[in-house]
Simulated assay, not measured.
Amino acid sequence: MTNELALDRQVCFALYSASRATTAVYRPMLERLGVTYPQYLVLLVLWEKDGRGVREICAELELDTGTLSPLLKRLEGLGFIERRRLTSDERRVEIHLTESGSALRSEALDIPRQLAHKTGMTVEDLEHLRDSLVKLTGALHDTEGQSLT
């Protein structure tokens, strides 16, 4: 008889373990850049499109402003970003990369390849895994508003 509640059968635990292991592998690569994993995620968003609003970054990373604000403050202190108030609406702030923040991108270019090497998986394998996780996340977000009864 299969134990459906065995820890090793739980998707949530496999995702949790994989997330922790992945973050641990990223840590030394990111230390070389001088940033933490959450700060790296913010930089990835800005390297895609510079000059984003705080709300836009929050939405992209699925974070609340209380979590994002300290990340932005630290990145600003490191000299990688700057905040600019919009002249058209002083309540809104856009986040821009500094020259140092933009230059850091070239130093980060090999991180996906390094990750693939450390996992023993190909970049294509990791892309398939990512696509499956994106699909899972989308399905779970779709069910958040639905009643389980």
Score class of each variant (00 low, 15 high):
residue 44 L to N: 15
residue 27 R to S: 12
residue 55 R to C: 02
residue 82 E to T: 14
residue 37 Y to W: 11
residue 40 Y to A: 13
residue 24 A to S: 13
residue 79 G to S: 06
residue 53 G to H: 03
residue 123 V to A: 14
residue 90 E to D: 12
residue 103 A to W: 12
residue 10 Q to K: 14
residue 89 D to G: 05
residue 132 S to Y: 12
residue 6 A to W: 01
residue 92 R to W: 01
residue 115 L to T: 03
residue 66 G to A: 12
residue 58 C to N: 06
residue 71 L to C: 05
residue 43 L to S: 05
residue 125 D to R: 06
residue 127 E to T: 07
residue 39 Q to R: 13
residue 26 Y to Q: 08
residue 55 R to T: 10
residue 71 L to H: 08
residue 126 L to G: 01
residue 81 I to K: 02
residue 79 G to T: 08
residue 69 S to G: 08
residue 49 K to A: 14
residue 138 G to S: 08
residue 52 R to W: 02
residue 149 T to M: 13
residue 114 Q to C: 03
residue 100 S to E: 14
residue 54 V to C: 04
residue 148 L to Q: 10
residue 77 G to W: 10
residue 136 L to Y: 04
residue 54 V to P: 01
residue 79 G to V: 07
residue 27 R to K: 15
residue 38 P to M: 08
residue 77 G to V: 02
residue 94 E to W: 00
residue 71 L to Q: 11
residue 46 L to Y: 05
residue 4 E to W: 13
residue 13 F to Y: 15
residue 104 L to G: 07
residue 46 L to T: 03
residue 18 A to T: 06
residue 34 G to L: 01
residue 121 M to A: 10
residue 75 L to G: 04
residue 37 Y to K: 14
residue 84 R to C: 06
residue 35 V to D: 00
residue 108 A to E: 10
residue 133 L to N: 00
residue 18 A to Y: 04
residue 149 T to P: 14
residue 9 R to V: 06
residue 17 S to V: 11
residue 72 L to M: 07
residue 99 E to C: 01
residue 47 W to G: 10
residue 122 T to Q: 00
residue 119 T to G: 03
residue 53 G to Y: 05
residue 6 A to P: 01
residue 14 A to T: 09
residue 144 E to S: 10
residue 29 M to H: 05
residue 113 R to L: 12
residue 97 L to D: 01
residue 9 R to H: 15
residue 27 R to W: 04
residue 54 V to N: 00
residue 70 P to L: 06
residue 11 V to H: 11
residue 113 R to P: 00
residue 144 E to T: 09
residue 124 E to C: 05
residue 68 L to D: 03
residue 90 E to Y: 08
residue 114 Q to L: 06
residue 114 Q to F: 02
residue 144 E to D: 11
residue 101 G to I: 04
residue 60 E to P: 00
residue 58 C to S: 03
residue 85 R to M: 07
residue 54 V to M: 03
residue 119 T to Q: 07
residue 132 S to F: 10
residue 65 T to Y: 12
residue 138 G to A: 11
residue 68 L to S: 10
residue 23 T to M: 12
residue 10 Q to A: 12
residue 10 Q to W: 07
residue 119 T to H: 03
residue 57 I to D: 00
residue 4 E to M: 13
residue 106 S to R: 15
residue 53 G to D: 03
residue 108 A to Q: 08
residue 18 A to L: 13
residue 64 D to M: 07
residue 46 L to F: 09
residue 127 E to R: 13
residue 128 H to D: 12
residue 76 E to V: 04
residue 58 C to H: 06
residue 93 V to H: 04
residue 97 L to G: 02
residue 119 T to N: 05
residue 144 E to V: 11
residue 10 Q to P: 01
residue 33 L to V: 03
residue 66 G to F: 14
residue 69 S to Y: 11
residue 104 L to W: 10
residue 124 E to S: 12
residue 64 D to E: 13
residue 34 G to K: 04
residue 130 R to N: 10
residue 86 L to C: 09
residue 94 E to K: 10
residue 113 R to F: 06
residue 103 A to S: 15
residue 86 L to G: 09
residue 59 A to M: 08
residue 52 R to V: 04
residue 88 S to M: 11
residue 133 L to E: 01
residue 87 T to C: 07
residue 96 H to N: 09
residue 81 I to M: 02
residue 135 K to D: 11
residue 50 D to F: 06
residue 85 R to Y: 10
residue 104 L to P: 06
residue 147 S to Y: 14
residue 15 L to F: 08
residue 125 D to W: 05
residue 50 D to L: 03
residue 113 R to D: 08
residue 137 T to K: 13
residue 34 G to H: 02
